[in-house]
Design a binder for these strands. Structure first.
Length: 592
RNA sequence: GCGCCCGUAGCUCAAUUGGAUAGAGCAUCUGGCUUCGGACCAGAAGGCUGGGGGUUCGAGUCCCUCCGGGCGUACCA
């Protein structure tokens, strides 16, 4: 940001530092990029020249405040402790000894308590922009130093009812986390674990049967813990119609329950699959818990645990010695009635993931399951999986708010708001974005009033509008955005103010994707897109004050501006795609 | 009781993982603008980062402690 920044700045003369003609797919603003690495090495040499120990390796960081430049180093601050001298004095000496030739950095300044701030030369920025344009739809993707095979398991709702809003949050975060890993060079499969065994499923069958009998005049109570939702009656009637009352009545009770349970499960999971599909989430694999029993996975696991002395029988149940692993009490694997707990299936399931060749498993769970995490970790490490094999993302609750009040009831579903009802109102784009824009570990209030607002007070539209504006510019100017080939002279005509801000923001996209992937934090992409959209809107509206600065205005800056607009379009489009949200080329105005 | 998560502007949230004067968006106030899509722009105001202590060049961030909120603490999942 030349001109705007108050700190004194020493101009450093540079010669032949870059070779702009041959740079392809180059990133320049990342702290791992070639300019940053060269800068770190130059800093090290300068530090040693002024008396730093040989093992001193200075860090190059990105300043939080963009007006501080493209890179910063705290070398003088760190050295001050080791050399016992004031940091600003050391910073000045470092600057004297620093050889910036061949680093791609053209300016440095000493600021604050002793930071060294650096600005990239324009040649390097132009090369970065050109590389973004050449990357096209791949802009934002990068390769991994160590590519891994990930299994991301999410939603995994019991097939006992429709998906509700909390599942939606898990679906959006799981799907976007998977995408982040893909975009950073990993191999990813999305998986849904179907708890189609165990007590909850039995209860489902009993609940259906109860509703069926009640509708035929039998005076009967719902079983303890039975499913109360209205959808149970609907399914009971659907099955009665399909199978026939007479046939159901003729069956022995266990057979009848089996039949009702199996058919109801099919209907409910098909409904879940349909909802996820409409929500834009596509699973690679639906894994049935029951298959673990069919293939003997659970029995094999129990044998292994018993032989190794980790499991034992007591009180008619089989227990796992989790106290050896730091748990406060041992946990039951097989109940005294012979049925299995979900704990044992879960262990077998995760071993199965490892056996299928996955190197990492990321599970997205509701935060109310957090107590289960240490036990699972302990059990898996005890069975020989690495401590970093399983990673659990805990998703906090969602409350839907309308007019300042919590929305509780849904006509059909019972005590919760169904995911389908929610995005029937907001559309899947808005619902997904809202679920993604908050950190997973914070309980979120889903503000329906804001979600239904189509102005750019609504962050989804703010980002989508900025994208649509760029598309609109190309349409109006009859410019093919894919055929832009700006020269250095074109780009040098870009202004130092807002345009430089937009440019450096765009160039940081790939590293922001990597940071979000490392943190398993899709919300960081939302923050980034809103930041970029804000900068873009400010840039765009400069044309309202000064017609010569419109994107399409004729003149020497036009090719550079259009190239920048193309990079913005690519970045916003890619970012939205990464989050699973559409990037419309035009948005209808209200009332049109 | 114990464990996990959270506490930042009036509200909803950031702060690039220990950096510089803690930033955005709503809402409020002031002043602009016949439009490449005005669904706009510029500016102002707003803070003891829940309280206290510690670690170091430097803490919203790490450690200890207290306060407040949520969740968990099953032979449920």
């Amino acid at each position: 940001m030349e001109g705007a920044s108050p700190p004194p700045r020493r101009r450093v003369v540079m010669e032949g530092q870059v070779n702009p003609g041959r740079v392809v797919k180059m990133e320049v603003t990342d702290v791992r990029s070639a300019p940053a690495r060269a800068l770190a090495e130059a800093l090290r040499e300068a530090a040693i020249a002024i008396g730093a120990p040989d093992d001193f390796s200075p860090q190059v960081e990105r300043p939080a405040d963009p007006t501080h430049g493209d890179f910063a180093s705290n070398a003088a601050l760190v050295l001050s402790g080791r050399l016992g001298r004031p940091p600003r004095e050391l910073a000045a000496e470092l600057a004297e000894h620093l050889d910036l030739a061949s680093t791609g950095v053209s300016d440095l300044a000493i600021a604050g308590p002793g930071f060294l701030n650096f600005s990239l030369s324009e040649d390097v920025l132009w090369a970065g922009l050109r590389s973004a344009l050449e990357s096209g739809a791949d802009w934002g993707r990068s390769s991994a130093a160590e590519p891994l095979r990930y299994n991301v398991e999410f939603v995994s709702a019991n097939p006992t009812g429709p998906l509700h809003v909390a599942h939606g949050r898990g679906a959006a975060i799981g799907d976007a986390t998977a995408a982040l890993l893909e975009w950073t060079g990993h191999e990813v499969k999305r998986e849904f674990y179907v708890n189609d065994a165990g007590r909850q499923i039995e209860l489902l069958g009993e609940s259906i049967e109860t509703r069926w009998l009640q509708a035929r005049g039998v005076d009967l109570e719902m079983p303890q813990g039975g499913y109360q939702g209205e959808y149970i009656r609907d399914i009971a009637e659907e099955l009665a119609g399909e199978l026939g009352d007479a046939r159901l009545e003729a069956l022995e009770r266990p057979e009848r329950l089996n039949l009702l349970r199996a058919r109801a499960t099919d209907i409910l999971r098909a409904g879940q699959a349909r909802d996820l599909d409409a929500f834009g989430v596509h699973m690679d694999h639906w894994f049935d818990e029951s298959s673990l029993f069919a293939t003997g996975g659970v029995d094999g696991l129990l044998d292994r645990l018993t032989e190794s002395g980790r499991a034992y029988r007591d009180d008619g149940a089989v227990w796992l010695r989790t106290t050896d692993l730091g748990d406060e009490k041992d946990r039951v694997l097989v109940k005294s009635d012979g049925s299995h707990t979900y704990f044992v299936s879960d262990i077998a399931y995760h071993l199965d993931k490892a056996e299928r060749g996955f190197q990492r498993a990321i599970d997205v769970w509701g935060a109310d399951h957090h107590g289960h995490v240490p036990r699972m970790q302990a059990a898996l490490t005890a069975l020989g999986l690495g401590e970093d094999f399983l990673e659990v993302l805990l998703i906090q609750l969602v409350t839907v708010m309308r007019g300042g009040e919590e929305v509780r009831m849904s006509k059909r579903a019972g005590q919760f708001v169904s995911l389908r009802d929610l995005f029937a109102e907001t559309g899947p784009d808005v619902a997904r974005y809202f679920f993604l824009m908050r950190r997973a570990e914070v309980p979120m209030a889903f503000d329906l009033d804001l979600a239904l607002d189509t102005s750019d007070a609504n962050p989804v539209y703010k980002v989508q509008y900025a994208h649509a504006r760029m598309c609109s510019v190309f349409r109006r100017g009859e410019v093919d955005p894919e055929c832009l080939a700006p020269t250095d002279a074109d780009l040098a005509a870009l202004g130092p103010g807002t345009e430089r801000m937009v440019l450096t923001t765009v160039l940081r996209f790939p590293e922001r994707v990597r940071a979000a992937a490392r943190a398993r934090a899709p919300y960081q992409i939302c923050n980034y897109l809103e930041e970029l959209a804000g900068a873009v809107n400010a840039w765009y509206h400069e044309g309202n004050l000064d017609a010569s600065r419109r994107l399409l205005a004729e003149g020497p800056s036009r090719p550079g501006r259009l190239a920048l607009a193309r990079a913005v379009q690519l970045t916003l489009g890619s970012g939205l795609k990464l989050l699973g949200i559409s990037a419309p080329e035009r948005l209808e105005r209200e009332g049109e």
